[in-house]
Write a protein that binds this DNA or RNA. Structure first.
Lengths: 344, 344
DNA sequence: CTGAAAGCGCTAACAT
DNA sequence: ATGTTAGCGCTTTCAG
């Protein structure tokens, strides 16, 4: 099937539903009914209308419709940073999840700041979106709850529920546990951690998992092995440099995310430390490019795309397009080539 | 300054301009005039209206406005793939470029196919966007021209002009030239090229630059050194493997983009070839993460973000928000650590 | 400088 | 099953 752009005479717009009604010899309501499937109409009229629509190349004005119905067929999405692979994968999931329903996402990016996040959200609500998806923002629970009074919202990475509020959470602590436990099992006992952004729950949880794995294995992590990163390659690079240059010995690094791991990997290289021969490295997120790192990165796979997809579904569900309940796939450790057995 | 979400009684929406007029004791038209700065009004009334707006927390219904004015305050953006770092950077530029004007981008992604691109575009126009930005799509020039009759469009990576049509082009061939010339200058004579997607002008142009540099240097490239990639890390990986395993000798690889280079770098590693000791590697695009590759990648910097930014400005300009004419920064070779002198 | 009034294009009672 | 009609919330002549 070949789609073509109409080769209509020119940009002479403005054919309305009324025109269609006139040409088809029916009333406007009939046209409307056919358009929306609101009621049954006689086959003959239906055909006439469809012919008229085709002939006139009529396309309903969704603004007029929205004005009347109050439904905008848009959902707002707040993302932390449209530039990060992580969020754009989630965005993709949202796009796909929304596809069938005919809703369009309108995406704004906050900038890791509560102030601008709130402003972005305000832009979205001023556009009267039918629903809101908030990807891990900095705004307060109270504000989220407030927002959820105006329209359904789904938010990730925190547990918040309400009549028009759902949340989607994956167990970050478990991920941190998985990563660290893997390293421990390989015989590492001096495992450094490059943490994520301070005060972010996901960053904190991953660290907690690191602690838990240690506790279970009965090894006490050296506190000097904990350095702060910020979820970026740059931050990871700096942190790893600091760590190496501190002289505190370690044989493995668990990074708060893959970007951090990539930065750390470069730092190791620059200081002449081989991966995985001298140091084992594990990341978090398992971004698509991580399997193409050199060497391919061992990482905790997070179902980012699915989070987006399911967030969209949950939202649609609240908006009255019932969807099956969904279960997020669990976190999973993807063992690749940056980790190896250690004997001191 | 602290922004707060209103703590209004509840989700009792629906305060209209009429309510404001009533409370302020003026006519609706006066309120409208103040909202839009359409005419001068007496200071007293202005204050009364502003007070009423604040008190009622009035927010104009943009759908009603759009219905009346025909202006939707949205611009459509068609991107090839929202997941690629390349496009999301451009998207970011667009977002920033649009910011001040109050227009919101609505983004759809095509999928590297003419069919779906066209469908996505149709979604956009059915939303009656005020303008369109097309990032390098597969749709035909004729269709683009057709589209430009309905609303202003700016398109990247091809030269197309018209009353409501502008294009933004960066000289890809020159980029290919730059990369190859650098390698030649280092003494390499057996330079492989992992090309981009077939039939894409940018991929072709980069290859043409490769050829031109060779011609100028008086060296004839071995045709067996040209292998096809597809702009992805996976494609680059496969192509490089094929190249290495073919046994045809080479000392350098120019990759059609950074993703390809990342894949190639992994292949080299897997075959025991060191970068840059045994093989020099250069990429194209200079994505932010490329400077964190191990080792940091030499790459042709393309002003992707600026392309987005300027595209937005050009569009706004056509839409009647005059902007300064803009000049794209030129391509630039970022020499890092994957390239090195060669003596056979 | 300000108000009255007429719609923008569509949907949804309410009739028939 | 289909038509009539009254708006949705805003902007914008047109008077005054």
């Amino acid at each position: 099937m070949t789609t073509t752009l109409d080769t209509s005479p020119s940009g002479t717009e403005a054919v309305t539903l009324l025109d269609v009604a006139r040409v088809a010899g029916v009333s406007p309501s009939t046209v409307s009914r056919i358009l929306n499937g609101t009621a049954r109409v006689a086959p003959a009229k239906r055909e006439a209308v469809e012919a008229a629509i085709a002939q006139l190349q009529f396309r309903p004005n969704i603004f007029a419709r929205s004005l009347k119905t109050g439904i905008t067929m848009t959902v707002g999405v707040l993302t932390q940073s449209i530039e990060s692979q992580f969020y754009s994968r989630a965005l993709k999931g949202i796009e796909v999840g929304l596809e069938a329903s005919g809703h369009s996402p309108i995406i704004v990016s906050g900038h890791w700041s509560a102030e601008t996040d709130l402003a972005s959200l305000q832009l979205l609500t001023s556009r009267r979106v039918d629903g809101l998806i908030i990807l891990t923002s900095n705004i307060s629970d109270a504000d989220v709850q407030q927002l959820a009074r105006q329209q359904p919202v789904v938010i990730t990475e925190r547990a918040l529920e309400g009549p028009k509020l759902r949340s989607l959470h994956v167990d970050q602590k478990f991920g941190g546990y998985l990563a660290t436990q893997h390293l421990l099992a390989l015989g590492h006992t001096r495992i450094a951690h490059i943490a994520g952004v301070e005060n972010r729950a996901d960053a904190q949880d991953r660290y907690l998992g690191y602690l838990q794995a240690h506790a279970e294995a009965g090894v006490t992590p050296d506190p000097r092995l904990l350095v702060r990163g910020n979820f970026t390659d740059q931050g990871g690079h700096l942190a790893a440099l600091r760590l190496i240059d501190s002289g505190v010995p370690f044989s493995a690094v668990f990074c708060a995310n893959d970007d951090t791991a990539q930065g750390a990997r470069l730092a190791l290289y620059q200081r002449g430390l081989r991966v995985p021969d001298d140091v084992s490295l594990v990341g978090f997120d398992d971004m698509p490019t991580s399997s193409f790192m050199t060497p391919p990165l061992t990482s905790v796979r997070q179902p980012v795309y699915e989070v987006g997809l399911y967030a969209a579904r949950m939202l649609l569900d609240m908006m009255g397009y019932p969807a099956d309940a969904v279960q997020l796939p669990p976190l999973e450790l993807m063992v690749r080539e940056t980790t190896r057995k250690w004997q001191a």
